[in-house]
């Protein structure tokens, strides 16, 4: 399967990665190279094979409902690009 410019633009939108005009072509080409590689999978007969999401086929262990995390807001917000009054600041959210 080969993808075109419109698909690349949609992927950029979904993945929130700006793909500049000058990069669209080279990005499309290299992604098509990768897709050509992975297309080898299409030839395999996998009828009836259960997908393997975890290599050990293990099941989930649960946590008890106990508060273990103290307030570390100041430590965390020291890392933030923009924070004020305990809030992270971002350009206006429009719903």
């Amino acid at each position: 399967m080969s993808i075109d410019r419109a698909t690349i633009e949609k992927l950029g939108e979904l993945a929130k990665i700006l793909i500049s005009e000058s990069n669209v072509e080279v990005t499309t080409r290299s992604i098509n190279d990768v897709l050509t590689l992975v297309d080898q999978l299409q030839a395999v007969d996998t009828a009836g094979v259960r997908p393997l999401a975890n290599p050990l086929d293990a099941t989930q262990r649960l946590r008890s409902d106990v508060v273990t995390e103290p307030d570390c807001r100041d430590q965390f917000q020291a890392l933030a690009p923009a924070a004020e009054n305990g809030l992270y600041l971002v350009p206006k959210v429009i719903e």
């Binding site: 950029g12 929130k16 965390f76 890392l79 933030a80 690009p81 992270y88 971002v90 350009p91 429009i94």
Partner: peptide, 19 residues
């Protein structure tokens, strides 16, 4: 770009900041 790490300069709006 919200809680840590790199954020671009002068984002025009929220999608621009992400992208």
């Amino acid at each position: 770009g919200v809680r840590y790490g790199y954020r671009c300069d002068a984002p025009a709006d929220l999608p621009d900041m992400f992208k």
